[in-house]
Simulated assay, not measured.
Amino acid sequence: MFVLAVLFAIVMPRPCAAASAATPENIYFAGVAYSADAADVAKEFPHLSKVLDSQVNASLSALVRERLQGQASAPKLIFDQLGSIKDASHSTALALAIDGEVTSIIKIGDLYKTRLEISAQLLFFDFKEKQVLGAFPIILDYIDTGAQPPDGAKLDALYRAMLLGSGGRGSLADEFVKTLAGATVPAPSSRHLRVTSVDFEPKAIAYLQQSAPNADVATVSRQVAREFGKYLSTNQNLAILPFASSQALGGSMAARFVEGDAYQLKIPEADYGITIKVSGFKKLEQGRTATSIGYIYGAFVDLAVTEPLSGRTYFAQQIRQGANQTVPVTQSSTEDWANAYDTLRLLFNNFTMAISDPRSGWVKTSMPDSSNAKNQMTSLQGLVQSCR
Results as ranks from 00 to 15, higher is better:
L232E: 01
R226H: 05
G273E: 08
S310F: 03
F315Y: 13
G298H: 00
L208H: 02
K266C: 13
K266P: 11
P213E: 00
G322C: 05
A304E: 09
T275L: 09
V305R: 02
A244E: 12
G251F: 07
K266M: 14
A248D: 09
V258T: 04
K277R: 14
V278H: 10
E285P: 11
R312Q: 04
T326I: 13
Q317L: 07
R288C: 11
E227S: 14
F228P: 11
I205F: 01
Q331M: 02
S221F: 04
L208T: 08
T219N: 09
L241R: 09
K282L: 06
F200I: 00
V217F: 08
G273W: 02
A225N: 02
F300A: 10
K266A: 15
L249H: 11
L303H: 02
A316K: 10
T291E: 15
G273K: 01
D199P: 01
P268C: 11
V301W: 01
N237I: 15
L303Y: 03
A262S: 05
R320Q: 14
V258P: 03
G280M: 00
E259S: 14
E307M: 00
P242Y: 04
R256P: 11
N237T: 15
Q236P: 07
V217G: 06
I274S: 10
G250K: 06
A254W: 10
S279P: 09
N237F: 12
S197H: 07
R288W: 05
A290K: 08
A204H: 01
Q223L: 09
Q264S: 05
E269W: 05
E285H: 03
G251T: 13
R320F: 03
A323I: 12
S292T: 15
P328D: 04
V278K: 08
I293P: 01
E227Y: 10
V220R: 03
V327W: 08
K230L: 13
G273L: 05
S211G: 10
H192M: 09
I240C: 07
L241Q: 11
S221V: 06
